[in-house]
């Protein structure tokens, strides 16, 4: 009987402690909600009610909120630099060098880590190269930090077999990478960064990169619309320019832009057929 009373007393004491704890937590929640202005109607004046602070204007990149496990954009106006990659292969024993600048193909440099949760999605995606749908003429290169910051054996387990993987901490500095995962698209012939960013999965990153390539493609398309001048035309113009120069007719000479009486006459004779020598207008 005594034992039962002692047991009941102990149970009541424990339950009492739990109730006190719950009440305390509840009070804390109410206090926090009160501080945030919850339950106070607009215009309601209360001695206890404190005005909620005005929304903080976004004045710097630090104010942006990004998804957990996704690095915030770096604090700079322009794209980072690009550099060729030199480092160790997964496993940490073999040496790898990848040329990024001054090459025919463009390169997507994927900065990953063996430890980050979001990176795992990219490691998995890169194991299935056919599903990546990389932009045409583009090479994917995976970069992790060097053996001083990454486990070579872990990287070796994750590294795709189809794409090169380089372990180099220097590349993170060269490209000014804010964290992993992060992607940089480099135009091969110019060696310039055309786009950079990150996302929670490959589909979003691919969309980002496609935008960069489409923009670049538009520029290329406009350049392609310029019709090249035939060599014969170019040679003829140069010959005429030389002959005019030898005759003392320099660029901008008034005689190039005026018609003599004889010219006007011959022009009339030519009628609407327009003789080839009807006007002395040449490229100056």
């Amino acid at each position: 009987m005594t034992a039962l009373i002692v047991l009941l007393t102990a149970v009541v004491a424990v339950l009492g402690l739990l109730v006190v704890g719950v009440l305390k937590t509840h009070a804390e929640i109410l206090k926090r909600l009160h501080d945030l202005g919850a339950g106070i109607e607009p215009g309601e004046s209360s001695a206890d009610a404190q005005p909620s602070p005005p929304p903080t204007p976004i004045t710097s990149r630090d104010d942006f909120q990004v998804m957990p496990q996704v690095p915030a954009p770096p604090e700079r106006e322009h794209f980072g630099g690009a550099a060729d990659l030199v480092g160790l292969a997964p496993g940490g024993k073999d040496a790898v060098s990848i040329r990024i600048q001054g090459v025919e193909q463009d390169t997507i440099v994927a900065f990953l880590s063996s430890g980050c949760v979001t990176c795992q999605k990219f490691w998995d995606a890169f194991a299935k190269p056919r599903k990546l749908k990389l932009p045409k003429g583009t090479r994917l290169v995976v970069v992790t930090k060097g053996p001083e910051a990454e486990s070579p054996s872990s990287v070796a387990k994750l590294a795709p077999t189809t794409f090169p993987t380089v372990m180099t901490t220097d590349a993170f500095t060269d490209y000014d990478i804010p964290g992993s995962p992060y992607f940089v698209y480099v135009h091969g012939p110019s060696g310039r960064v055309r786009g950079e960013g990150t996302g929670p999965d490959w589909d979003q990153v691919r969309a980002l990169l496609e935008q960069a390539t489409v923009d670049a493609g538009l520029t290329g398309a406009l350049e392609d619309q310029q019709v090249a001048k035939p060599n014969a035309d170019q040679a003829r113009e140069e010959r005429i320019d030389r002959e005019l120069w030898a005759a003392g007719v320099q660029p901008g000479d008034p005689s190039l832009y005026s018609l003599t009486q004889q010219d006007e006459h011959s022009h009339d004779d030519a009628g609407h057929t327009g003789g080839a020598e009807s006007a002395k207008i040449v490229k100056s």
Binding site: D84, A89, K93, D94, A95, V96, S97, I98, R99, G102, V103
Partner: peptide, 12 residues
Amino acid sequence: NLPTGWEGRIGV
């Protein structure tokens, strides 16, 4: 020491 335009691998 690779010249411009060249890349390489040394491995086993």
